[in-house]
Amino acid sequence: MKSKEVVEMFDLSIDTLRYYERVGVIPPVGRDKNGYRNYTKGDLNWIFLAKSLRRAGLSVESLIKFATLAQMHKDSDVKKGQKKILHDQLQEIDEKLKEMNEVRDLLQYKIDTYDEHIAQFQSGERTEETAEELWNIKDFKKK
Rank of each mutant, 00 (worst) to 15 (best):
K96P: 08
D88G: 10
K142C: 02
L12V: 11
L49W: 04
E61A: 10
V29Q: 05
Q91G: 03
G57S: 06
E92V: 11
I26Y: 04
Y36I: 01
I26C: 08
A119E: 14
I118N: 11
N34G: 09
E133D: 11
I47P: 10
V60C: 09
F140G: 00
H117N: 15
I64H: 06
M9S: 09
W46H: 06
W135R: 12
L134I: 09
Y20D: 05
T16Y: 07
R104K: 11
V7E: 08
G57H: 11
R37G: 06
T40Q: 02
A70L: 06
S52Y: 14
S123L: 05
K83S: 01
L90A: 08
M100P: 04
M1E: 04
L17C: 04
R104C: 01
M9R: 13
H87P: 01
S59R: 15
H73K: 12
E95L: 12
D105N: 08
E21N: 06
I93A: 01
H73N: 12
K142V: 08
M72H: 07
M100S: 13
Y114N: 15
R54C: 07
Q89C: 03
R37M: 07
I93D: 07
K80W: 09
L86G: 03
K74H: 07
E8R: 11
G35Q: 02
K143W: 01
E92A: 15
A131C: 07
Q91M: 09
Q108S: 10
N38K: 15
E102C: 07
G124E: 04
K41G: 10
E132K: 01
D115L: 15
K110A: 05
D15M: 05
